[in-house]
């Protein structure tokens, strides 16, 4: 019994230490925003890597999700004779929840893993030490540009994902479910409120911050060798995904709880 309690205690302490360590890491990253120098070249490169190159995967995910959502809502709504709600529910579902969450998860899979692997490899091959000896702070040079780029790029990806997802729903609605195109669009536009869209973009920014922070944190704390980098990559994706779901719930409570 004592051994079991000790084991639980160790796990809890270790989890708390990890939370504290991630929080300090995130705070230090943000604090570098206020302290020059800022590495613009690394920021632009990160913006292209995280934003531009994630467009296809986010767009495709949103397109098929929008289409599937239209089919599901039509099937469910038809039980109550409420098929007409398809355009409005697809729109609200995409912009409030599915656009930000799926966009965030796809970016987590693509970007958190790549950041953790890149920085982890740099650590293992002493490139991080080399940066320090060359009077360059790794947090400023590696972490801040990536975190800032992800925080700014993911809302844009979410906006694109929202539009593509709604378009996917529109295509299925018009071509498969027999909706009139003009009516479908009118229902979508009439039903959506500005806050529906803006709240999703705020979520996107939060998810972008989480994804890049977890990628950088696990990369910087990577263990030795290929196994260490592999473990860092896996931890980055898993922790970023779980934190996205947790943050999504908290933000939804903040934004929409009555």
């Amino acid at each position: 019994m004592t051994r079991f309690l000790a084991s639980v205690g160790r796990t809890v302490l270790s989890a708390l230490a990890m939370v504290g360590s991630v929080a300090l890491f995130a705070l230090e990253t943000v604090s570098h925003l206020l302290r020059p120098p800022f590495y613009w070249r690394e920021f632009w490169q990160a913006l292209i890597q995280i934003g531009w190159l994630s467009l296809p995967v986010v767009g495709l995910t949103a397109f098929f999700t929008g289409g599937a959502l239209a089919l599901q809502i039509f099937a469910g709504g038809s039980r109550y004779g409420a098929e007409a709600v398809v355009p409005s529910i697809v729109a609200i579902g995409m912009v409030r929840e599915l656009g930000p969450v799926l966009g965030g998860l796809m970016v987590a899979a693509r970007v958190a893993s790549s950041i953790a692997a890149e920085i982890g490899t740099m650590k293992v091959t002493e490139q991080i030490d080399a940066l320090v000896t060359l009077s360059t702070n790794p947090m400023k040079y590696l972490t801040l540009p990536r975190v800032l780029a992800a925080t700014l790029a993911v809302p844009v990806l979410v906006a694109v994902g929202d539009s593509v997802g709604i378009f996917g729903g529109y295509l299925v609605g018009v071509n498969r479910l027999g909706f009139n195109g003009a009516v479908y669009l009118k229902n979508t536009v009439d039903f959506l409120e500005q806050w529906d869209v803006v709240s999703g973009l705020f979520k996107g920014a939060a998810f972008g911050f989480i994804v890049a922070t977890m990628g950088c944190y696990h990369g910087m704390n990577s263990g030795r060798g290929a196994q260490g980098v592999g473990r860092a990559t896996k931890s980055a994706v898993v922790s970023a995904s779980v934190l996205i779901f947790a943050a999504n719930y908290i933000l939804t409570e903040l934004f929409f709880a009555a």
């Binding site: 740099m122 091959t125 002493e126 490139q127 030490d129 080399a130 000896t133």
Partner: peptide, 11 residues
């Protein structure tokens, strides 16, 4: 300081 690392540590 200048430093040559074991594996060169080139970026």
């Amino acid at each position: 300081f200048g430093m040559l690392f074991q594996g060169a540590a080139l970026f």
